[in-house]
Design a protein around this nucleic acid. Structure first.
Lengths: 139, 139
DNA sequence: AAATTATATTAAAACCATTCTAAACTGTTG
DNA sequence: CAACAGTTTAGAATGGTTTTAATATAATTT
């Protein structure tokens, strides 16, 4: 349980003004027992339902991108034209359930160490992401 | 070097009518020494330049999706709103150069075996894809 | 080889996630 | 509280992708 004051401090410490909208988004995203995955549309719906407040789509995009840049969110690449975000920012990987279009966390331990043996001159590795696609097992 | 007749047979054997447009796309995609990565826009440009022919965008999308479904192409998931395709359909992974927006193949050997230790009941693993993001190494 | 049927191509419109714009608003600082 | 910089907003714009419905082409039948 994080208090509103703590979110305000977190925002201020990140150089982000603690506006009403940003605090609301913090509460929706970071005041949960578990981390979760969401799309921008999911988030807008949660805010409008749970908080019964209107928020501009542009603000949601701005805020999510600001949070991503600060490292409070991660974007998960999936072969979709929609962006998925994750409130779990620790190093981990994902299952993607194709039929249900859902993401499931996969701990580093579940995948094992990945040692990239090739390197490109002048470039350094920023991240290593594993995406395991799942199909229904009908046999 | 694959002849036009071979492409026609390949198409027909796949249940795809060998139209002028599909044959042209086969020639652009599969008559190269090496495999490569492309976006739909790249492909349209290649066709219009190299072949000096007009082709409808819709046809390109239709054909690429048909080829993907048949397993002649793979889509590479990147956190972008643009789809990247790969004419290399063997099991392998990718570097993604963030600044140059380019994909580089990464053999299975360069990554090592990945053993997923977690499983989801009723689901089976369809694919395991590793995406290694690269940044410019300026230090 | 003509007629029929099924499938493919096309230009243009529609779609939809995301970004941009520029005006109104709000948090911060002195 | 005044002034400024940063933020929100509705609506327009953007751009990749899909749909539409008419036309064209390949395959099949006669």
């Amino acid at each position: 349980m994080t208090t509103t004051v703590e979110f305000i401090n977190k925002l201020r410490n990140s150089g982000l003004r603690p506006t009403k909208q940003r605090i609301k988004i913090c509460e929706v995203l970071f005041n949960k027992e578990t981390t979760f995955h969401f799309t921008i549309n999911d988030l807008v719906k949660i805010i409008e339902t749970e908080a019964n407040e209107k928020i501009s789509l542009a603000t949601v995009y701005n805020t999510i991108h600001a949070f991503e840049k600060k490292g409070y969110l991660k974007e998960i690449p999936i072969d979709s034209n929609q962006s998925y975000f994750d409130t779990n920012v620790t190093d981990h990987h994902h299952f993607y359930d194709i039929s249900e279009k859902k993401l499931i966390d996969l701990d580093e331990v579940d995948v094992g160490p990945i040692n990239i043996k090739k390197s490109i001159p002048g470039k350094k590795i920023k991240s290593v992401e594993v995406l395991v696609k799942l199909d229904t097992d009908n046999q």
